[in-house]
Amino acid sequence: MWATIEQIFPYAIAFTIPLLITALGALFSERSGVVNIGLDGLMIVGSFIGALVVSQLQEAFPDPGVPKVVLLLIGLAAAAIASALFSLLHAFASINLSANQIISGTAINMIAGALTIFLARNMTGSGNIRVKNGFATFDVPILSKIPVIGELFFTRTYLTTWIVLGILIFSIILLYKTPFGLRLRSCGEHPHAAEAAGIRVQSMRYVGVMISGAFSGLGGAIILLTYSGEFTGNVAGLGFLALASLIFGQWKPIGILLATLFFGFATTVANVSQVIPSLAVFPPVLLKIFPYVVTLIALVIFSKSSNAPKAVGEPFDSGKR
């Protein structure tokens, strides 16, 4: 049993991290008052730009003199910027035009899914873009020698895991310990009071949506550069799973961390169940649908005491009080 846990742990973490960063981005958007159902599309854009930039860079700098990690980090940054820009489409529609945010988000998903494949096909013919090398796993020095914990948390880790955890801590501080965080959250709870206090609600919402875009882009690019290695025009619906994690985690950073860890482990267990004897006793279909059914049950349990931002999804109209 212990050996099993040790085996699947790194895979589960690798699966959790892109989900975590995407859901964390959505937290900023929803806390500022804008529902972002376009996470999936924004992840696809990140995956596409990441693949494009990294594959081009790896071709341009094949000599080992240029450290590989630098190229990958440039790819991550490009993906985050591109998705942040792409999310402006959603911000414009839902903030300036008071459009239905769910429809606008759906349009984002559709445009991203179709447009990236269209462009990729024009470039490669097959519509897939391969990246030669992604991030390599490494053991954290010293810490990996700690018994039990070292084996689980500090061996075979990706650099991106530590980056995302850093962003998580930074986000918690930003949201709960700074004036900026308070302002952003007030726009999602009571935008009219926020406005009366001199906060520019629309600008804050733009910031929220763009952070969500940037983080989703990172999420998509991390999938590409850690475990997938190829842009294929979709992210297997992980954007929707990230949205579910946000709600499951009750719009709180630590809740989101736990929810995404749950999805990461549940999915990994389902994926490897056939090769691990102690898990093979369960019918695979039950393991596969387990995370989704649990989410539905959790939604029912949380329904009485939902911590959703009060004004989320409502267009802000300054004149309407």
Partner: peptide, 22 residues
């Protein structure tokens, strides 16, 4: 022309429909 142009056109139409207030 890649066949995905059809999906792209549909997606763009939906975005324009969503922002028809403009």
């Amino acid at each position: 022309i890649p066949p995905e142009i059809a999906d792209t056109i549909i997606a763009i139409i939906i975005y324009f429909a969503a922002t028809s207030i403009l």
